[in-house]
Amino acid sequence: MNLTRRQALITALSAAAVAGILPRSASAQSLEDAMAAFTGGAEASEGGIIITAPEIAENGNTVPVEVEAEGAARITIFAAGNPNPGVVTFAFGPLAAVSRASTRIRLAETQDVVVVAEMADGSYQMAAQEVKVTIGGCGG
């Protein structure tokens, strides 16, 4: 995803979070709600998070995603274009060596994967990456 699009998204989302303005589309609204539930309404600033996901997924059923945010207490993944935006939340305990985790997720369509991290000091960081989902050709 190019930088300007990502920045645009993040700016829009965090502006909405700050001002309490709800974006128009239904799914964006529930993403906004889900984010607010995670951050308690606090603003998330960009950066501090590494998302590793394919630019193009061969199938939306099983998309590998890794998230890492140094020193984060919790990291959550949202899929803005799914029927429900929530995907997974990792809470790192005292014996987590790094605040990093990988999993496989379902993406209904091409969309932004949005990741929010709660840092040790209680602040929030966020990042997003677009994943294009392709539809396979053959075979039932």
């Binding site: 995907v87 997974v88 496989r104 379902r106």
Partner: peptide
């Protein structure tokens, strides 16, 4: 958990794929 101390506590939603897979690092 390791010897009763938490390494990672994960909340899953229906958007996690069939046969849930996790990878992480523990001390």
């Amino acid at each position: 958990e390791y010897n009763g101390e938490m390494v990672i506590d994960v909340t899953l939603e229906p958007a996690i794929s069939t046969n849930p897979y996790f990878e992480f690092d523990a001390t």
